[in-house]
């Protein structure tokens, strides 16, 4: 699971994340909504250990990120807005390399299978990544999360720029991962996807988590209206 306790990060005078308390259980998809500069990516970076918090703590499956960032990272997978891959390597070669780095070397047949489960055909898997669309790259990212058997998944604007079909496909995979017990934190602007996929939604503004809603709470409500009201409050 993913847990933040009074997590705070300042950049000089500006508070990027302010006393964030958050707990995402296995199987849960948590959508963190907020405008640009609200603190979404900083939160992700704090969970990854790329930033050191000024106070508070982030934990991944019980491991403190500040105390042992490498061990914490080994328990999670990360999919950014655009999954970065090596353009001179094929999809399957990229997956092979990254899963080895994650400590999960796998046979090529398994890698093809994981890519297929993520929606990438064998022909596409053998093509150099330089020719991939964004959606195809995200699929390799999902395959990597599957390959490393991550307990938690951090997503930073994962569906931004995807066409509706690719976005839908991505969501389907995400729900599947959650069903398998993965705790998912998704920073996003995409209200539609948040409503469709998230079991909980948090709104972050100026580094503060200003509201949280469960899926049931917003079931019949207009998320866009709630969101805009919170922004203008």
């Amino acid at each position: 699971m993913l847990e933040a306790q009074k997590l705070t990060k300042r950049f000089q005078d500006r508070v990027a994340v302010d006393s964030l308390d958050l707990r995402i259980e296995p199987g849960e998809i948590y959508a963190l909504l907020g405008p640009n500069g609200a603190g979404k990516t900083t939160t992700i970076n704090l969970f990854l250990g790329f930033l050191t918090p000024d106070s508070g703590a982030a934990r991944v499956a019980g491991t403190s990120v500040a105390e042992d960032p490498v061990a914490a990272r080994r328990k999670l997978a990360y999919i950014p807005e655009m999954v970065s891959l090596y353009p001179r390597f094929s999809g399957v070669e990229n997956l092979d390399y990254f899963s080895r780095l994650g400590g999960h070397a796998r046979q090529h047949t398994e890698l093809y299978e994981l890519l297929a489960r993520s929606g990438l055909t064998r022909e596409a898997a053998d093509r150099r990544v330089g020719t991939y669309s964004k959606g195809m790259r995200q699929k390799v990212g999902i395959a990597l999360a599957l390959a490393t058997g991550a307990k938690a998944l951090l997503l930073d604007e994962p569906t931004s720029g995807l066409d509706p079909a690719a976005s839908h496909e991505f969501s389907r995979m995400l729900r599947k991962l959650a069903k398998d017990g993965v705790a998912i934190l998704m920073a996003t602007h995409d209200l539609f996807r948040a409503r469709e996929d998230a079991s909980r939604i948090g709104i972050i503004l100026n580094g503060r988590l200003v509201a949280q809603y469960s899926r049931d709470e917003i079931k019949d409500q207009d998320l866009e209206k709630i969101y805009l009201e919170r922004l203008s409050a």
């Binding site: 790329f50 490498v70 990272r73 999670l76 990360y78 950014p80 970065s84 990254f98 780095l101 994650g102």
Partner: peptide
Amino acid sequence: ESGTLRQILSLGVR
């Protein structure tokens, strides 16, 4: 610059 460093280090590579 390409973002792969982030990807690699997120996997727990020292």
